[in-house]
C-alpha cells in the first residue's frame, strides 16, 4: 500500500465533505500547505470549520478559501492580515473562535495524543475563561481546555518519504507536527519526496505513522508576508 499520491487533488479524493473540520498548518504564510489549500478551493467543498493559527492574506493561503466562502468557522489565535476575513466577520457570515496561541497549540497536541482535556493558567480572569471549569492546583487557578481533533489535517513539510516521515525546515515547522497527529486523516505535501532511507531517523520530526497520504509539491510560491531587511554594514 502506497502513501504517495500524484497530486493534491488525488490525495484529497474521497476525503472531503461539506461541514467537515480541517486543520491547516502554518504560521502566517510560513509553512502553509499551499498545494492542498488550492485543491480544497478547487473541490468546492463548503461549510468548513478550519483550525489554523492564522487566516492567510486576501489572495493567498486560507484567504483563498474565504474568498470563495467555503469557510463557515475559523478557530485561530490571530487573523489580522485579511480584509476578506474582516468583511465576512463583520457581516456575520463567518464565525470565529479565538484561542490563545499556546492553548491552541496544546489543544491540538492533546487531541492528537488522545488527551481529551488539560488545565492551563493561560486566560484565567479573561473572556477566554468564561464558562470553563476552574480548578485549583497548589494554590494557583487553572481552566480546563479541551483537546482538538479534525476530520482532516493538511500539513506542509520540507522533506518526506514514502513512509510518511517528515522533516520541517526552520520556522516553517510551527503548527504542522501537532496537526499531523490530530487529523483522522492527515495529508502532507513536501518540497522534496526523498527515497526511504535518505532521512536520518534521528532527525525525523513527524514519524510516518501520523501521515496517511503524501504528495510532492512543485513550484512553491512561499510568499513572504513582511519582507524586512537590513542594509549591509
Amino acid at each position: 500500500m502506497t502513501k504517495i499520491y500524484p497530486d493534491a487533488a488525488a490525495a484529497l479524493d474521497g476525503v472531503l465533505f461539506d461541514g467537515m473540520t480541517i486543520m491547516s498548518g502554518g504560521f502566517g504564510l510560513c509553512g502553509i500547505p499551499e498545494k492542498l489549500i488550492a485543491a480544497i478551493v478547487a473541490s468546492g467543498v463548503k461549510n468548513l470549520t478550519v483550525i489554523s493559527n492564522n487566516a492567510g492574506v486576501d489572495d493567498f493561503g486560507l484567504g483563498l478559501l474565504l474568498q470563495t466562502r467555503q469557510i463557515r468557522k475559523m478557530i485561530s489565535s490571530y487573523v489580522g492580515e485579511n480584509d476578506t476575513f474582516e468583511r465576512q466577520y463583520l457581516a456575520k457570515e463567518l464565525e470565529l473562535e479565538f484561542n490563545p496561541q499556546g492553548t491552541l497549540a496544546e489543544r491540538i497536541r492533546a487531541g492528537g495524543a488522545g488527551i481529551p482535556g488539560f488545565y492551563t493558567k493561560t486566560g484565567v480572569g479573561t473572556l477566554i475563561a468564561e464558562g470553563k471549569e476552574h480548578k485549583e492546583f497548589d494554590g494557583q487557578t487553572y481552566i480546563l481546555e479541551r483537546g482538538l481533533v479534525a476530520d482532516l489535517s493538511i500539513v506542509k513539510a520540507w522533506k518526506g518519504d514514502a513512509q510518511g516521515n517528515l522533516v520541517f525546515r526552520k520556522t516553517a515547522r510551527n503548527f504542522n507536527p501537532m496537526m499531523a497527529t490530530a487529523g483522522r486523516m492527515t495529508v502532507a505535501e513536501v518540497e522534496a519526496l526523498v527515497p526511504v532511507g535518505t532521512l536520518d531517523g534521528d532527525t525525523v520530526h513527524t514519524p510516518g505513522i501520523f501521515v496517511k497520504r503524501i504528495i510532492a509539491g512543485a513550484n512553491y510560491e512561499k510568499r513572504i508576508e513582511k519582507r524586512t531587511v537590513r542594509e549591509s554594514a
Partner: peptide
C-alpha cells in the same frame, strides 16, 4: 537580526511575520 536582501528566507520569520 533582519537579513540582508540576499539572505531573505521565506521559511525563517519572527512572530511578527518579519523575515529574520
Amino acid at each position: 537580526p533582519f537579513p540582508l536582501a540576499s539572505e531573505v528566507d521565506p521559511d525563517l520569520i519572527n512572530a511578527g511575520k518579519q523575515t529574520i
